[in-house]
């Protein structure tokens, strides 16, 4: 009896510890191959070179070219998603009737459930041609279209998480503001948003992290040309789409091309890990404040 109980508990413990092994596995794999990569390529070159051409005969390994593409597309996505997502969150929380809110939210959340490969197709075959009718110089592959579509995908992240944060603000605060004759707009921006700011910041950080790690949209619609540029109308390559490009080809194990995807992956992991940790830290601090 006691023995069986202990056995079951240990099984569950083992299940839980798989998550630890996963993290260890990720770090080990990335480090192992990256260390091997940095035997061939100096870290200095990796961090300072402005060209990324590991698949050409004249190889350059400047990760900046990929990082710039990554941040350019992510910045466009956030520029789209933040104002729209936050406005929706405030609207649903402060203005919309309850029944409205209940029916609209699931619809918005469908946006987050659509597979990203579908968004990639949408960006390439529908959004880009549409944008080209406005701005004919836009190239077929560009960061603008990929960024906008990524932003659309991220809207429900920001709107949902921010709305939760607004919802968690004590009702008394809202009523106090109304009681002093504030309009809903004033209440929203002078009382609610500041009170929910940490939750909103967390939602934005998570959205950025999501955008940086997003793969299929940029792999399909943003192109495969690593370049250090802020021009949204030309093709770029992100860290993720580079990994896809190499994986789709046939890089033999042990070759430099093969190892680059782990070095690139390690870079990406460091970015998202930092962002996630910051958001976790803010969340913990903010929870304590309200408890």
């Amino acid at each position: 009896m006691k023995y069986k109980e202990k056995l079951i508990e240990n099984f569950f413990k083992f299940c839980a510890s798989i998550t630890i092994f996963t993290t260890i596995g990720i770090i080990a794999v990335l480090l192992f191959e990256s260390i091997s990569f940095f035997r061939d390529v100096s870290i200095f070159e990796f961090l300072t070179d402005t060209q990324w051409t590991p698949l050409f005969s004249e190889k350059h390994f400047g990760i900046l070219a990929l990082v710039s593409g990554t941040f350019l597309t992510a910045a466009i996505a956030i520029a789209v998603a933040l104002p729209i997502g936050l406005t929706i969150a405030i609207y649903l929380n402060m203005y919309a009737p309850k029944s409205f809110r209940k029916t609209l939210k699931p619809f918005l959340e469908i946006l987050a459930a659509i597979p990203t490969v579908v968004y990639g197709f949408f960006a390439l075959t529908i959004v880009t041609p549409f944008l080209q009718t406005i701005y004919p110089d836009l190239e077929t592959f560009n960061s603008l279209s990929a960024g906008i579509v990524m932003g659309i995908m991220i809207i429900p992240f920001i709107s949902s998480l921010s709305e939760d944060a607004l919802y968690a603000v004590p009702k008394s605060l809202k009523l106090a503001a109304f009681g002093m004759g504030s309009t809903r707009f004033q209440t929203a921006f002078k009382v609610m948003v500041p009170a929910a700011s940490s939750g909103i910041i967390v939602s934005v950080i998570l959205a950025i992290s999501r955008a940086i790690g997003e793969t299929m949209i940029v792999a399909i619609a943003a192109g495969q040309q690593p370049q250090l540029t802020l021009n949204p109308t030309v093709p770029v390559q992100t860290i993720t789409s580079f990994i896809v490009q190499v994986s789709s080809g046939d890089a033999p194990q042990g070759s430099v091309e093969y190892k680059t995807i782990f070095a690139a992956g390690l870079t990406l992991f460091l970015f998202t890990f930092t962002l996630n940790s910051v958001s976790f830290w803010i969340k913990k601090k903010y929870q304590e404040k309200y408890e």
Partner: peptide, 15 residues
């Protein structure tokens, strides 16, 4: 676990 939830899916691919 909260960190794993935020790891990009492509990193899982590398794993």
């Amino acid at each position: 676990i909260s960190n794993l939830a935020g790891v990009p899916s492509i990193i899982y691919g590398l794993l």
